[in-house]
Design a protein around this nucleic acid. Structure first.
Lengths: 355, 355
DNA sequence: TTGAAAGCGCTAACAG
DNA sequence: CTGTTAGCGCTTTCAA
């Protein structure tokens, strides 16, 4: 078993100092000043034995870990795992590794996780914040660590946020339902103050108000089991003066709602029109296929990475606090269109990304 | 901004040596030998200022990182992300963090990732191996690092494997199709030599042979786009002498297949019976609902964690090479049962886990 | 029962 | 242009 060599072993072997090797390895200003012959000798030797500096030692010495901490609500949720995947790939390419963790939207858990990340000296954070985590995020900022907040954010604290146009998405979706003749439209959402949900509600209400309709809304508790969710939605639909259209606030609410509607033996879209928020690769295959507000997962991920890499490379340059709201896309399918001869899947034209 | 204190700062403050503090912190044999008063003073002071030893320094000194490297095919696949989630939660509870990475089943990528993990001195590995990665896995074993191989494995190398009973699952599923009157049954799978796929094929063929039927099989290339996949399956179904039943080898093959069947305007299960391998939370909502071989995600995850934690805690105890094959469960739904009055969703009785 | 000293492998002043 | 030195914060002989 070949013993790992250290930079000093190599220094001895080559008759130069560890310092010189370190300079060569780093390149940059100081690296230039090493004479060509020496540099070549070092480089080729290192190449030949496949030496790689020990990142732990570098970390201890420099305080840089080349690790990013990523905090999401639930990595097994398709939305977060899709983003996780893209972010991970991009960041690995830039030499960073990722610590992932899921908060379940639990403040205490998120706090612990953030502390763990900090102890481990992660170089930057990507976080989908839980409620009440403002203080911890501010602390990270004070330590001059780059933090990208995504999916939701706190308007009261100055962070760099990558989100989507929630209000716009909900507005467009609701309008679409209205234009297709639905009038008793409800918004089924989470009983949550988080901004992504309140914006969706606001967008919904705006459309409803413009059309002079009555606003109906069901707020369910977070972490309600699928069965209970379904039951609650069922009761709501049958109880609440004949709802004939629903915009669901999240993808799993839509799934539970679909189950409820199935149990109720109602026909989509004849009896009730459906739109989900957050598209899903299976919605297309449902019968009828399900209309949804799609989030630009790819764009969100790229934006997060781009901002983070920038902050990481520009030494100590603090990120400007700014909210990037990426446009959503309404994918119209059968569940929201009463017109029997549904032919082509229409995608709304994408508005351009404001970056 | 409060400066992080080191163990020496505390030593000075308390008038003891860093050594003593270290002993107290570690507990164990050596910790016992510190006198009570001193120990209490140290403990309460540390508690009061919230001191935590720097894990990077510990890592450098001891070679233990308290990090586990987890390599999956694609973290955005529901199967892998579900497992990732559970493993992550359990391991965090034991003080470990996780590096995740996705291989896309690409050998070269997997190699790089494994090297990265190694450089970072991860304490253990959880790997869904790509083809051709045997040598690298053996190297890790030689370094006496615990490695848990899952989802698939290499029969020719002695590793600890956590998999499912692929042959049994496929056999049961095929038998189920046969019992429900389907006779021209095909297996749609990946053109792959990996063991999980070849075992599924074997299970399928066994059932087909026992029933004296003709074996039909479509092997598609890995990483075929959804469109092409769908087209290929479409061609296969219509071209291949009237297939009337399909067992799909993976969840995404099933989804593409469903799309194909939809395009073909065939009626499930009347024209064609369908069973998927690897259940999905949405299969229940499809019309008709889709029968599937469910993998015991929870059990797989628990087993992985249990084995890993054991290996990690028992100093230097090498894991015994052994394959744990967990039982699958056939979730019978509408897509495979011609009998019109489908009433209750039947779950096959679970065979007991062999642990 | 406690402490001094020697590093783990690397980097960064500061000399030369 | 290159090398010496002094740590980063911790653990672990070894000696007291």
């Amino acid at each position: 078993m070949k013993k790992k060599l250290s930079i000093h072993d190599i220094a001895r072997e080559l008759g130069v100092s560890a310092t010189t090797i370190s300079f060569v390895l780093k390149g940059g200003e100081r690296g230039k000043k090493v004479s060509e012959p020496v540099k070549q000798r070092i480089l080729s030797y290192i190449e030949s034995i496949g030496y790689k500096p020990n990142p732990i030692a570098q970390n201890l010495r420099t305080g840089k870990s080349k690790i990013i901490g990523m905090l999401v609500e639930d990595i097994s949720d398709p939305f977060f795992s899709a983003i996780g995947r893209i972010v991970e790939d991009s960041l690995y390419k830039s030499g960073y590794k990722i610590f992932h963790a899921s908060t379940d939207n639990d403040t205490e858990k998120a706090r612990n996780l953030l502390h763990l990340f900090r102890e481990r000296q992660v170089d930057g954070y990507i976080v989908a914040p839980t409620p009440g985590i403002q203080k911890e995020i501010l602390e990270l900022l004070h330590e001059a660590k780059p933090v990208i907040v995504f999916d939701r954010y706190f308007p009261e604290i100055a962070t760099t946020n990558v989100v989507i146009d929630n209000a716009g998405g909900a507005y467009t979706a609701t309008m679409h339902l209205i234009e297709n003749g639905f009038t008793k439209i409800a918004f089924v959402t989470l009983d949550s103050d988080q901004i992504q949900m309140s914006e969706r509600l606001a967008g919904f209400n705006k459309a409803i108000a413009e059309a002079n309709l009555e606003s109906r809304c069901l707020k369910v508790r977070y972490k309600t089991s699928v069965q209970n969710l379904s039951a609650e939605i069922k009761e709501f639909i049958s109880g609440y003066a004949g709802v004939d259209g629903i915009l669901f606030g999240t993808n799993y609410l839509a799934v539970s709602g679909l189950k409820a509607i199935q149990d109720l033996q109602m026909i989509i879209p004849n009896d009730i029109g459906i739109v989900g928020f957050d598209d899903n690769s299976h919605f297309e295959l449902f019968t009828p296929s399900i209309t949804a507000v799609a989030q630009p997962v790819e764009q969100i991920s790229k934006k997060i990475v781009q901002l983070l890499i920038k902050a990481l490379s520009e030494n100590d340059t603090v990120l400007t606090a700014k909210t990037y709201a990426l446009p959503t896309e309404l994918i119209v399918r059968e569940s929201s269109v009463r017109n029997a001869t549904f032919a082509v899947k229409t995608n709304m034209s994408k508005s351009e990304t404001k970056l």
